[in-house]
C-alpha cells in the first residue's frame, strides 16, 4: 500500500511542483497516474521512492515512512525510472547482479526470477552483452526485470511501456495483473490513456501539482456527469482546471 498525506514539494526558488497531495493506492489494485507534462507526476513518484524528500506531509509504503524508515521502505519497492540509460558500461547480467545484491536477492531466487523474466521479455540471449549495445526497448526490459526480480510488495513505474514492443507491453501488463492478484500494489504513470482506460482499476489525475480526481473510470464519468472516453474526460478536466 502507498499512502500520501498532504504532501507538498516546492523547487527553488518558488516552483510549486506538488501541492497538498492526499490519496491511497491500496494493495491488489493497479492505479494509473495521469496528468499533462509538468503536472508533478515524476516528482510524486520520486518522493514515493525516496529520491526526493517532501517539504510537508507524509508518505508511507507498506506502513513505513519513506523519510524516517527509508531503507526498509525502499526494500519494499520495485522502481522503474523514466530513463533506462543506467550504467551502460555494465553487461546486462552484471547490472542484474548488482541490483540483486542491492535488494538482497538470494542466488537461487535470483537465477530463477531472471531466467523466467528474461524469457518472458525475450532478452535472455542478450544479457551477456554490454547495456550500451542494447536498444532503448531492450534497456527498458532489463530495468523492468531488475524491478520485478525481488518480487516487491509495491511497484512504482514511471512510463514503463515507453520503447517496448507490443509483445513486451502485453507481457508487462500480464505481469502487473499477476502482481495485483497476489495482493501487491501497482502504481504507474502513463500518457497512454487507452492503456489506463482498459488496464487500470483506478486512475489518479494530477494537474499543476494538485490532485483533480482519484477513483475508477465509472467514478470519473459520474464526477463529470457524462458517459465519455477517458481521453475526453481527461482533456475536459485538465482544460477546465
Amino acid at each position: 500500500m502507498i499512502e500520501l498525506s498532504h504532501v507538498s514539494k516546492t523547487y527553488p526558488p518558488n516552483t510549486k511542483a506538488v501541492e497538498d497531495l492526499t490519496f491511497i493506492v491500496p494493495p491488489g489494485e493497479i492505479v494509473g497516474f495521469l496528468g499533462p507534462n509538468g503536472a508533478g507526476k515524476t516528482t510524486t513518484l520520486k518522493m514515493i521512492t525516496g529520491i526526493l524528500t517532501p517539504d510537508t506531509g507524509e508518505i508511507r509504503v507498506c506502513g513505513l515512512d519513506v523519510v524516517k524508515d527509508s531503507l526498509k521502505a525502499k526494500q519494499k519497492i520495485g522502481f522503474v525510472p523514466d530513463n533506462p540509460n543506467m550504467f551502460l558500461r555494465l553487461k546486462g547480467v552484471e547490472y542484474l547482479n548488482f541490483m540483486g545484491d542491492a535488494y538482497d536477492v538470494p542466488t537461487e531466487l535470483r537465477r530463477e526470477r531472471i531466467a523466467l523474466l528474461s524469457k518472458i521479455f525475450e532478452i535472455d540471449h542478450a544479457l551477456s552483452d554490454f547495456l550500451e549495445n542494447y536498444s532503448h526497448g531492450m534497456r527498458q526490459k532489463v530495468i523492468l526485470i531488475s524491478a520485478l526480480m525481488h518480487d516487491p510488495e509495491v511497484l512504482v513505474l514511471d512510463e514503463p511501456m515507453t520503447g517496448l514492443d507490443p509483445k513486451a507491453v502485453f507481457a508487462l501488463k500480464n505481469l502487473l495483473r499477476e502482481c495485483a492478484e497476489k495482493h501487491k500494489t501497482v502504481f504507474f504513470s502513463t500518457h497512454i490513456l487507452d492503456v489506463a482506460e482498459r488496464f487500470c482499476d483506478k486512475v489518479a489525475l494530477i494537474h499543476k501539482g494538485q490532485l483533480l480526481f482519484y477513483g475508477t473510470l465509472q467514478d470519473m464519468k459520474k464526477h463529470c456527469q457524462r458517459d465519455a472516453s477517458l481521453e475526453t474526460l481527461f482533456l475536459e478536466m485538465t482544460e477546465n482546471a
Binding site: G92, V93, L96, N97, G100, D101, D104, V105, P106, T107, R110, R111, I114, A115, S118, D124, H125, A126, L127, S128, D129, N133, Y134, M138
Partner: peptide, 13 residues
C-alpha cells in the same frame, strides 16, 4: 547486442 546463451552461474550474490 551479441546473442549469447545466458549463463546462470554468473548470477550469484
Amino acid at each position: 547486442a551479441k546473442e549469447k546463451k545466458l549463463v546462470l552461474a554468473e548470477l550469484k550474490n
